[in-house]
Amino acid sequence: MTNTCLKIAVIGLGNIAKQHIENIISAQVQGVELVAVCSRTRSELSEEYGLAHYQDYKSLIDSKLADAVIIATPTMTHFEIAKYALQNNIHVMLEKPIGLSSFEGEQLITYQKKDTKFALMLNQRTAPVFTKMKSIVESGILGNIQRTHWTMTNWFRPEIYFQVSDWRATWRGEGGGLLVNQAIHNLDVFQWICGLPIQIRGFCEFGKYHDIEVEDEVTAYLKYQNGATGIFVASTGEAPGVNRLEIAGDKGALIFNAGKLTLVENMQSTAAFNKQTNDMFGMPDSRSKPVLIDEDVNQHALVMNNFINAILHEEALIAPASAGLASLDMANAMLLSTWKNLPVNLPLNRHDYQQHLDTKIQSSSLRAKSSRQANVDMSASYR
């Protein structure tokens, strides 16, 4: 890519698309020119900023007006739009998840050409607290990981969130609910820091708190290759909810709770103390200290800037599209385990999961959108 400024278009004009547009217009995303938007109805944005407007994504892509597109449409359309853009050598930044399932995502990646960048908006990989946690775990200071536990129940969503959308929280439109929409971020960060488990036993509740057909509460038990175990708990029906991530190792623990990060270091490894002490009720001495996270970043803008630099300057992608398969595998495994009432091994048999999902989709339909007007504050949607 020899251009010094990338021409980009946004497909979809929902809440998150408008945030991407704002980041570009306010110059929080550099090296890019917004040239067009695509939506079924004409937007004031296109007139206000002199942007070309297309009602059909194929017409936009065929025009060759844009070098890259941001796809921020309902999940059920991700595959067809991204496939068409990739087939036409257009760079793609796709909103999460990569598809209705990891099987669909795996198929989509096959359409990427060698010289085309395909990235996924896994923005929480840029959150300073999570990048710090990853570096601490990788440093080995915790020793061998023994246990992981993430309770993420402050994804509360009221009924109107679902009512004003025809596709959200349906098997046909989204491929699931809590796991593939809100908690997909947590699952991505969880496996990014701690690694993928080798087995998952999931317990999903469907429409427990909302008038929806998909999951809105999940508890899952994880097993890892090294013998470590884990728990993942998530909900969109609990308020105020909890956001607590614990990573316990042989030499200490890392605890993220209510926005604060704490590192606990054992003076002697647990395994060594266990074998050597003569104290019947002894415990290794430890010291606890806060890990200060004073950096505040625009996560979406960081990922977009990385995408632009990957195209213009061959910078390594923070989240290539393929990185989105692992978290979907975990989400899909939790659902499949619930449906089968059995543990599910990873690597996931994606074809098996897809067959089960297809059965759900066959009996699923999009809902009639409510005429209620929702008050939208996107800053309140992030956890």
Rank of each mutant, 00 (worst) to 15 (best):
M1S: 09
M1H: 06
T4H: 10
K7M: 07
A9D: 00
G12M: 02
L13A: 07
N15G: 15
A17Q: 08
V32G: 08
C38L: 04
S39A: 03
S39N: 05
E47L: 09
L60H: 09
I71F: 00
I71L: 02
T73W: 05
T73N: 11
I81C: 14
Y84K: 14
L86C: 13
H91A: 03
K96Q: 05
I98D: 09
L100H: 03
F103Y: 12
E104G: 05
L108F: 08
I109Q: 07
I109S: 11
T110Q: 13
A119E: 07
L120F: 06
L122M: 15
P128C: 03
I145N: 11
Q146I: 07
M152T: 04
E159Q: 15
F162W: 14
Q163T: 02
R168P: 14
R168I: 05
G177W: 03
L187T: 11
G202H: 05
E215P: 15
N226A: 07
I231A: 11
F232Y: 05
G241T: 00
G241E: 03
N243T: 08
E246A: 06
L254P: 11
K260D: 08
K260T: 05
L261M: 09
T262S: 11
T262F: 02
M267I: 06
A271V: 09
Q276L: 12
Q276A: 10
D279S: 11
D285V: 10
S286Y: 07
R287F: 04
S288H: 08
V291I: 14
L292N: 13
E295L: 08
V297F: 00
M304R: 14
N305G: 11
N305D: 10
L312D: 02
E315Q: 15
I318D: 11
P320F: 02
S322T: 12
A323K: 15
N332P: 14
N332D: 12
K340R: 10
V344C: 00
H351F: 00
D352Q: 05
L357S: 06
Q362W: 00
S365W: 07
A368I: 12
K369L: 06
R372E: 11
